[in-house]
Amino acid sequence: MATSKKTAGKPENNGSVDRKKSKATPFKRPVWELRLYVAGMTPTSIRAFENLKRLCEEHMHGAYKIQVVDLLERPMLARGDQIIAVPTLVRRLPTPVKKIIGDLSNTERVLVGLDLRPAGGWR
């Protein structure tokens, strides 16, 4: 799979995602930098990518960046992020780094994993 990038579009007017609510930078949204590690175009990796894209559109409102790394093409990259399972989604920004492995089919779990929703659910 080629490395594809999707960069932030225009910020949309939904304040619920912006949990910082900082007065100093009222318009600055968190920028999500995500990296999806896969090994070839398998059904699982395609499913993971689609799940991720849908989820980002719904919850990150364009303020995100997805980089897909195919380890078959760039095997040495697996060491840096300590990848053993594929697919693995790595949230590089905001810190701390988070990892979610699997095809991301359980949206709730992914949201919890990305800190978009606390484990108990607050919305």
Binding site: A48, V86, K99, D103, S105
Partner: peptide, 9 residues
């Protein structure tokens, strides 16, 4: 976090 299918490729 684990969700859905994966392998150790």
């Amino acid at each position: 976090e684990e969700t859905g299918e994966y392998d150790l490729e």
